[in-house]
């Protein structure tokens, strides 16, 4: 269970999150929607511990543990995964090497045995195939020369390999055509299980047709201003943020 209490976050000396409260129980899928610049990505970075995202007040606990006290890699080891809005290109590091190093680092953190190279190879290829990614792409440098859609799909391959217990997916749907969106949605649904939870950040409700959330929240100006079930997303779609009295900031 993830519990966010009164979370205030400063970025570049400016308060971006102004007291976010959110509880995500095991097995639940939550969606956060909100206008550009609302602080959605900031929330995801704060949960995962990016430098420069300074928590000034409040707490985030995961399964009772204060994760704000942990380094990013320790949070990953605890089972937290961040699907990036803008996946980063890393020239010279192959996807394969990256994923193996990541998986084995997490296993070491949890005191588990590392996966042997041969088993790993088979496992990763299977994960890539399920998400319709050409296994040849695993040999290439991380995200280098990948299209926007391929990058997002690569995030899902990484998620499948690392098998987290809690995933924050930051606009994983943006930049995808409808076929790719379906594949990614299947990938997310595959992760759904009674002991896992997902926080989906999205700008549009399109993804929510395929991954139906248990709860929908609207984040605006650094606070959750509305919560409800999936109907809230449809309402937003229909009326827009302005219609709900939430102005859209310029990005």
């Amino acid at each position: 269970m993830l519990e966010i209490r009164n979370l205030h976050v400063n970025v570049g000396g400016q308060e971006i999150l102004k007291g976010v409260n959110l509880t995500i129980k095991d097995g639940e899928v939550h969606a956060i929607m909100g206008p550009n610049g609302a602080g959605k990505s900031t929330l995801s970075y704060a949960i995962c511990g990016k430098d420069g995202y300074e928590v000034t007040e409040g707490s985030v606990t995961y399964n009772g543990k204060d994760i704000l006290a942990l380094d990013p890699h320790e949070r990953a080891g605890e089972g937290i995964f961040l699907g990036f809005q803008y996946p980063v290109e890393i020239p010279g590091v192959s996807n394969m090497n990256f994923l193996r190093t990541a998986l084995n680092s997490q296993r070491r953190y949890r005191g588990e045995k590392e996966m042997a190279a041969v088993d790993f190879l088979k496992f990763v290829r299977a994960c890539a195939k399920e998400l319709d990614m050409d296994p040849e792409m695993l040999k290439r440098s991380v995200n280098v020369g990948f299209s926007g859609g391929e990058k997002k799909r690569n995030e899902m391959v990484q998620m499948a390999v690392l098998n987290p217990s809690f995933a924050v997916l930051d606009e994983t749907d943006s930049g995808l055509d409808i076929d790719a969106l379906k594949i990614v949605a299947e990938g997310i649904n595959r992760l759904r299980a009674s002991n896992k939870s997902i926080l989906m950040i999205t700008h549009y409700q399109r993804l929510l047709d395929y991954v139906v959330p248990d709860f929908v929240h609207v984040l605006a100006k650094g606070k959750i201003v509305k919560s409800g079930n999936k109907d809230l997303a449809l309402l937003l779609e229909e009326k827009g943020y302005v219609g709900l009295g939430l102005e859209e900031n310029a990005a």
């Binding site: 430098d51 990013p72 080891g77 980063v88 890393i90 990541a102 680092s105």
Partner: peptide, 16 residues
Amino acid sequence: IDQLFYLRARGLDETS
């Protein structure tokens, strides 16, 4: 720093 965070968020400690 973005590359560094990407790797760390996937489970690599800072030195690795």
